[in-house]
Simulated assay, not measured.
Amino acid sequence: MTVLVTGAAGFIGAYTCRALAARGDQVVGLDNYNDYYDPALKRDRVAALCPQVDIRRLDLADRQGLAALFAEVRPRRVVHLAAQAGVRYSLQNPHAYVASNLEGFVNVLEQCRHGDVEHLVYASSSSVYGDSATPPFSEDQRVDRPRSLYAATKAANELMAYTYAQLYGLRATGLRFFTVYGPWGRPDMAPLLFSRAVLAGRPIEVFNHGRMQRDFTHVDDIVAGVLGALDRADGGERHEVFNLGNHTPVELERFIDVIAAAAGREAVRHYRPMQPGDMVSTMADTRRAREAFGFEPRTPIEQGLPPVVQWCRDYFGKDA
């Protein structure tokens, strides 16, 4: 079986490619290697995690190139993880989110529709819950009050996939990821930002004066959920959405303490007001994913964070 993974050089994408290849699937990836963060990290990530996977350099906006790839590869399943990520960056460069997360997603939907893809699994985000939800966030809660354009594009993706499922019979599953972390992670996210700062003796900017909680979820648990959703054979609806989170929110101050302990040095905190677009607390209700495909996260931060700190020390060295 051939599986196409978009965003294959990304954090979750590379781990997903590795897991699919390890179990014997034929995997083809695509990534545009954009410069939202250093493309060298993406190349190194691929070399470390999934060097055997065929990853093509291609942008989702290239409709002809995407059509040619689908015609060549003829994937039976698609894991769509490519997107312009980042809540705060969406305040600065909104057009990047429209091009990648809306136009690019339509292009993927069209190729899945015309290419007889049996199952599309795509990345959504816990950000879709916005101002409307009360923890624990359940898939039944409304998602029409986003706090950022990034969140709005992810909520739109869910509506778009639902429409294609109803109009054309495309089977699609959206996965709402909750703050994913691990070695080889994104350098713009708190786990790496904080780890690198503590290792280098730089102060950490702690927003909302530390009064924040996040449902930090290890990448291994997320990938297990991606594969579980992809393999689900008895889905009831043509389009479904699931939370993938740890169901155990962690106080931001506790999160920093664990990083500091792993680094072996004190974390210097500079407290700041709440950032526009951020959410105070996230917590996933994962019952639906557990019942549907056995999703059961197993990695607490005390186990998952020290390898992140060690990876930062090894990869970035004195430039951490």
Rank of each mutant, 00 (worst) to 15 (best):
F137K: 04
V121P: 01
Y122D: 03
C112Q: 06
P135A: 02
H114G: 10
V117S: 02
L120H: 00
D131A: 13
D116S: 14
S138P: 11
S127W: 06
S125M: 02
V117G: 00
D116H: 14
A133H: 11
S138C: 14
G130A: 04
V121Y: 01
Q111P: 10
L109R: 02
R113I: 13
L109G: 05
D116Q: 12
A133W: 08
C112A: 12
H114N: 11
G130D: 01
F137G: 02
P136S: 04
G130K: 01
S126P: 06
P135H: 07
P135C: 03
P136V: 04
S124L: 04
E110N: 11
L109D: 05
H114L: 15
S126V: 00
E110M: 07
P135Y: 02
H119Q: 15
Q111H: 08
R113H: 12
S138A: 15
Y129R: 05
E110P: 14
F137V: 01
S132W: 10
E118W: 11
V128G: 06
T134Q: 13
A133C: 08
Q111E: 13
T134N: 14
V117C: 06
V121N: 00
S132T: 14
F137E: 11
P136Y: 08
P135M: 01
D131W: 10
D116W: 05
V117P: 03
G115E: 05
T134Y: 12
S132N: 14
D116N: 13
S126C: 09
R113Q: 10
D131V: 04
Q111S: 03
C112D: 01
Y122A: 05
S124H: 03
